[in-house]
């Protein structure tokens, strides 16, 4: 309990100090509860998630960092390893490959990496996984891009984007 608190506090300070270091990740601690964090991550470029901002919710157990934090997407995302309804993430480092040396920040990075490199063979989102496994990359990308636009883009930007798209190319 005490250890996890101290550790989280240190991570908090670290995050404050290196806010500019990783512009793709914005990690925010709940005002009243240091065991609740939210993160905003940018969809990696050259993926269907590009341009989207995805919100993650961290629930840190008291045994942290010996136990991994529970992370889920608050933002809808079409990804083979993310449960479409609950936002649960299937990622080894959040399960058995967790190491106490990892931090919330590094978890965010791992999730960004997972977005860029989906693992269709252990899907939580069967539709997405099936698309990829059947080789329909284009189908997967279209779906993912659509949901990124629908759910992960700020409304203003989304509107601008739609105008851009409708003006220049075929809408999805």
């Amino acid at each position: 309990m005490q250890a996890s608190r101290a550790r989280l506090f240190k991570e908090y300070k670290e995050v404050q100090r290196e806010k500019a270091a990783d512009p793709d990740i914005q990690l925010v601690c709940d005002d009243s509860n240091i065991f609740k964090w939210t993160a905003l991550i940018k969809g990696p470029s050259e993926t269907p998630y590009e341009g989207g901002v995805f919100q993650l919710a961290f629930a840190v157990p008291e045994q942290y960092p010996l136990q991994p934090p529970q992370v889920r997407f608050l933002t809808k995302i079409f990804h083979p390893n993310v449960h479409f309804k609950t936002g649960e993430i299937c990622l080894d480092i959040l399960k058995n490959a967790w190491s106490p040396a990892w931090t919330l920040q590094s978890v965010c990075r791992a999730i960004i990496a997972l977005m860029a490199h989906p693992e269709p063979d252990s899907p939580l989102n069967c539709d997405s996984g099936n698309l990829l496994r059947s080789g329909d990359v284009r189908g997967y990308q279209s779906m993912a891009r659509m949901y990124t636009r629908l759910a992960a883009m700020p409304k203003k930007r989304l509107a601008a984007r739609i105008i851009l798209i409708t003006g220049q190319s075929n809408p999805v």
Binding site: A6, K10, L66
Partner: peptide, 8 residues
């Protein structure tokens, strides 16, 4: 200087 796990 400090433990990376518990930060003590």
């Amino acid at each position: 200087s400090s433990c990376p796990i518990c930060c003590e």
